[in-house]
């Protein structure tokens, strides 16, 4: 049985569709990257999974964690899963740490709640966690407030807080977007190491494709709340099938671009929130779209370990579209 099984998860804001038919499986210890631009529904999908959608948003479909259905589960059950089963590392570490409480207080309350540790035992475990996330001078940090730490330190504290519930799944939402390039590498390495040492399953939400291969075996590309493509990370990045994935890869900085050249981008912008559409959501921005794309929603096609939703990529297509970055 898989650790996490998501079937046809949808998120609605009144009639508007934020997320549609999201399905994936994650084995214990497995890893998945959810890739997409801002507003593609990545974060909402993960909030839906924890029952933390903002008021006015509702989730449909099925999310089974360790065999237990989470959609529609009572608040008490969800609370038992949050932190202890699924831990969430937020995008903005400064905004997500309580500025009014010491690091030690914020760690201690989780150790008391999830591991029944208090006093000296809790302190020892807190120090061990801060050490595990490679935070220098852990004893000093316990007495400090979030604003007294640097960005990289705060990110490490966020990870320590996530580990405090001894979770089985870690969801990292843009774990490096607020960090500079050298710190980014350190945090990626730390995440990979924590995954091994704590036997974690890992979901990384990102628009930074450089995170994907070092951290995640599988990837899932979201656009405007719809799955565009899902595949093992290596083939997805080397030979993307879907025109959107191809365009996304072309738009990555750092590819072999001559100096002074303009970074390719995807023309247009995300469509506004709307009721579920009977067409391909990417069609208006797609350079391969034809009349069918604007009239009929493509089916989800599956071949071997990959899946995609595009009229232009038939099931028998060989690997490698025209637009692959490498």
């Amino acid at each position: 049985m898989n650790l996490l099984s998501v079937r046809e998860l949808a998120v609605y804001a009144q009639q508007a569709c934020v997320l549609r038919e999201l399905s994936f499986e994650l084995a214990a210890g497995g890893s998945l990257a959810i890739i997409g631009e801002s507003g593609s529904g990545k974060t909402q999908a993960m909030l839906a999974l924890l029952g933390l959608l903002a008021p006015g948003l509702r989730a449909q479909g099925s999310v089974r964690f360790d065999g237990e259905e989470l959609i529609g589960a009572p608040e008490a059950r969800l609370r038992a899963v949050r932190g202890a089963g699924i831990a969430y590392v937020w995008q903005d570490a400064l905004a997500s740490l309580n500025p009014y409480l010491r690091i030690g207080t914020q760690l201690g309350e989780l150790l008391a709640l999830h591991q029944q540790l208090r006093g000296g035992a809790a302190r020892a475990e807190a120090l061990r966690l801060l050490d595990a996330v490679r935070l220098a001078q852990p004893a000093l940090r316990l007495h400090q407030y979030p604003h007294e730490l640097s960005g990289g330190m705060r990110q490490r504290v966020m990870l320590a807080l996530a580990l405090a519930g001894a979770p089985r799944l870690l969801i990292a939402d843009e774990p490096t977007s607020a960090l500079d390039i050298s710190l980014r590498q350190q945090i990626v390495e730390l995440l990979a190491e924590l995954r091994r040492s704590h036997r974690l399953a890992l979901i990384v939400i990102t628009h930074d494709l450089s995170l994907v291969e070092p951290l995640c075996e599988r990837s899932l590309v979201l656009y405007a709340g719809e799955m565009m493509e899902a595949a093992p990370s290596a083939p997805l990045l080397r030979a993307p099938r879907h025109p959107y994935t191809q365009a996304l890869l072309r738009a990555q900085p750092g590819a072999a671009l001559p100096p002074q050249s303009v970074l390719p981008s995807i023309a247009g912008s995300l469509p506004p929130l709307a009721p579920p559409a009977a067409r391909c959501v990417f069609a208006p921005r797609c350079d391969r779209a034809d009349a069918r794309c604007a009239q009929q929603r493509p089916d989800w096609r599956v071949q071997a370990q990959s899946g995609w939703r595009c009229h232009q990529v038939p099931a028998a297509a060989d690997h490698g579209g025209h637009g692959a970055a490498r």
Binding site: R79, R82, G83, A95, A162, G165
Partner: peptide, 16 residues
Amino acid sequence: APYIRAARARGLSESR
């Protein structure tokens, strides 16, 4: 505030 949502996501009870 985001840190309240984050606190809820860590499993803390509403009264805490």
